[in-house]
């Protein structure tokens, strides 16, 4: 099957993404929606500003989808990620997985969101109520190098 990869500036339109399996073989369609919450570590957050390297991000999402298709029998697969400023309660991530049995859908969905966080070149900047901003720490890509010579991530 061909996964649907969607990357867009601004919040996701869930009505356009929510789907039902087009095949007769899926008994489970599991969807995950990541939304912007109003606090982090006790600090009031008013929005997330996502930065993104779009072409690299699309490639990473495709690669992650291919990895999932190898591991599970998936009949429907949608990965969508937003970038730009996303307000509280607005969706920034959408994952849909259709599989014959629910266990595989749960496993694949968990794999997909965790791997997106580790491999897709997207970055989150929290915007706080007091006007300050902070980039969140993340996971270095395998090719990354830190300041100390010879120290790789």
């Amino acid at each position: 099957m061909q996964p649907l990869i969607h990357l867009q500036h601004g919040p996701l339109n869930l009505n356009a993404l929510i789907t039902t399996p087009q095949d007769a073989e899926s008994g489970a369609l599991l969807t995950f929606v990541g939304v912007v919450r109003n606090q982090n570590l006790g600090k009031p957050v008013v929005a997330l500003d996502y930065d993104c390297a779009p072409e690299l991000a699309r490639q990473a999402l495709n690669s992650i989808a291919e990895d999932a298709l190898v591991q599970w029998e998936i009949n429907t697969l949608i990965l969508a990620h937003a970038y730009g400023r996303i307000e509280i309660g607005q969706p920034s991530v959408y994952i849909a997985v259709g599989t014959p049995k629910r266990a595989a859908a749960y496993e694949a969905s968990r794999f997909l969101i965790e791997t997106i966080k580790q491999r897709v070149p997207i970055w989150k900047c929290e915007v706080y109520a007091n006007g300050q901003e902070a980039w969140l720490e993340g996971t270095p890509l395998p090719e990354a190098l830190a300041k100390t010579i010879g120290e790789t991530a």
Partner: peptide
């Protein structure tokens, strides 16, 4: 994404990618 031992391509658009944190 370029590997550390690669020769840097001179005629490409290049990007600096800090640790990622999508989702």
């Amino acid at each position: 994404v370029l590997k550390p031992d690669d020769v840097l391509p001179l005629h490409e658009d290049l990007a600096v990618l800090p640790p990622v944190c999508g989702g």
